[in-house]
Design a protein around this nucleic acid. Structure first.
Lengths: 202, 202
DNA sequence: GTTGAATTTGACCGACCGGTCATCTTGTTT
DNA sequence: AAACAAGATGACCGGTCGGTCAAATTCAAC
């Protein structure tokens, strides 16, 4: 990470920052190349198209997420419900740091892309959907454990997990619209209050 | 609505549909003009810029909302907590209808625009923020009433109202990413489970 | 019927978009 | 050192973008 990493990595990292900080459509290949100090032809040597770049960026971010603070937050050593707070905290500090640097809250790359391009690109939409499904699965695990431990009365853990993810994305959306990370801190913890009861099976 | 409404109205309605169905950046002035059967010069006679058009579209949609199903949902004749269900239902049917026509779930225009352009345009961001604030206020009224009526134990109505709005936006985001309005129906009703307690004042 | 404003027309602009390509340099293998 | 592939270069492409404008047309008021 010190001096001149792989060209491909440099493109990827630059694109990730720009897409996250602005939007997919707003960032051109030329700008990415300039920032990443790469020639345009070189860019197309590594990525067939802008769209493929977007996919790579998504995967890259999903990986960093999964092995980064998501792994920390959903550490099995933590009590299940504390993991939710940890996750909220992580989002808060991340967004706050980003705002301090860029001046604006970037929000969630996946949420941003989902709303921007999922009506135009089925493949990207599907990929983002898969990432959300994985995220939801982490919540699900935590909830299952919480129910087992008796930390929480029984509930529809799967539906509730998805609802919690939705809530988190919604909170980030609102915080970004206010350009104020504090929204995450004040609203985030209420994620634990969300409950969807089991469907009646009688 | 029968034959050839005002040129300005035609532009507005077309732009609203296109922006909502796709995205701001994805829709060009040319396309709007073609669909609205208006010449480009005429367009710029009514709107100084694409950005001003966006503002007008936002206001137009906000108005239609406020006087449409939002007014219905938050009708004072309804029991406060039922208004939340009404709102969720309205979103569900609207999104479902839109998907049946266009094939894709458009989501919430305000949420879409917020994530797409709020990092780039302060004025639009502020306007969207104001609209969210107004929406939150409707939730707030309902919650206040619910507490008064004893339908709900006391809670921080203002924070909870905002949290509920966030949840609704989040649910719509997830539903759009899945391209499945049913998500709104299955997750939506849990909006009533969200609670933020009063801050300790002792 | 004349005047002046509102509206419409469509050609036109420079900038920028994503993407291509022939050519050159560099690194690896034998 | 020969040979070949991988990577880098930067000029170039057609198309589209948001936006402009002078001229033509329509409309309303007097």
């Amino acid at each position: 990470m010190s001096i001149a990493p792989d060209t491909k990595e440099r493109i990827l990292a630059t694109a990730r920052d720009l897409f996250h900080g602005r939007s997919y459509a707003d960032v051109g290949i030329k700008e990415i190349c300039t920032l990443a100090k790469v020639q345009k032809g070189s860019f197309y040597h590594f990525f067939p198209s802008k769209r493929d770049l977007a996919m790579a960026v998504i995967d890259s971010m999903a990986n960093e997420w999964a092995h980064g603070f998501v792994a920390e937050a959903f550490d099995e050593a933590l009590p299940p419900l504390e993991r939710l707070d940890y996750m909220v905290d992580a989002v808060y500090f991340w967004q706050k740091a980003a705002k301090n640097i860029e001046g604006r809250m970037p929000g969630c790359l996946f949420g941003n892309l989902a709303l921007e391009v999922s009506t135009r690109d089925e493949v990207i939409r599907a990929r983002l959907n898969a990432i959300f499904a994985k995220a939801s699965a982490r919540f699900h695990e935590a909830l299952e454990e919480a129910v087992e431990n008796g930390e929480t009365p029984p509930l529809d853990t799967e539906a509730t997990a998805t609802a919690m993810l939705a809530y988190l994305e919604g909170v980030i959306l609102l915080a970004k619209t206010r350009n104020d990370p504090e929204v995450v801190r004040s609203l985030g913890p209420a994620i634990k209050s969300i409950r969807i009861e089991h469907k009646q099976t009688n």
